[in-house]
Amino acid sequence: MEEPVDTATAILASAAALLREHTFDDISYRALADEVGISERTVYRQYPTRAHLLAALSNWIEQTHFPLPPFVTVADFRAAVHDRFRAFDASPAYAFVGARASAISPTLDAEPAYITRAIEAMLDVSASTLNRRDRRRLAASLRYFSSAMFWARLRTGFDMDAGEICDAFDRAVGTMLARLLDATWAKP
């Protein structure tokens, strides 16, 4: 791993390391301060509340461990989501942090996630004549079923592994895509 460049990042890297042994709730600011070799007050200055810490940690994990492959077509999108679900299965503690962070009341002016913009861009190109309401319905549904939340719910509530979760994802988005007429899709 690269050497962290600043205090804020060093704290996140330490928190991520502690996640191997502890749940997020068990990671105290005291422990983070000791790991990084700074005062507890400095941790608070960077992350005034645990919600701030959770949001920042999730962003950092997303960038370092779950980069999203680019996609243009629906087929590429599905493949990218499958890769993500498999990556979540390989690092469940990290994926649960992502799922939690996306459910909390936003701490900052939270920008929509990159995957949201990528899905909207995909539909702009692939289904350019689709009316605005159906496009938003579809984009929101694709986004929600490709989320860490979907993975977390199926893993915890249904005891499913990545392969089964990918299959459930394909079936769900398949029903949504099937609501559109064939003529909607741009011909390659």
Partner: peptide, 27 residues
């Protein structure tokens, strides 16, 4: 097939749907 329907409806019938649609799409 049965499980696919159940998981999809469980996922949709939850507060996480409201959070995601509001936060990611400003709905």
């Amino acid at each position: 097939q049965r499980r696919a329907v159940i998981v999809a409806l469980c996922h949709l019938d939850s507060a996480a749907t409201w959070v995601t649609f509001r936060r990611e799409f400003g709905m």
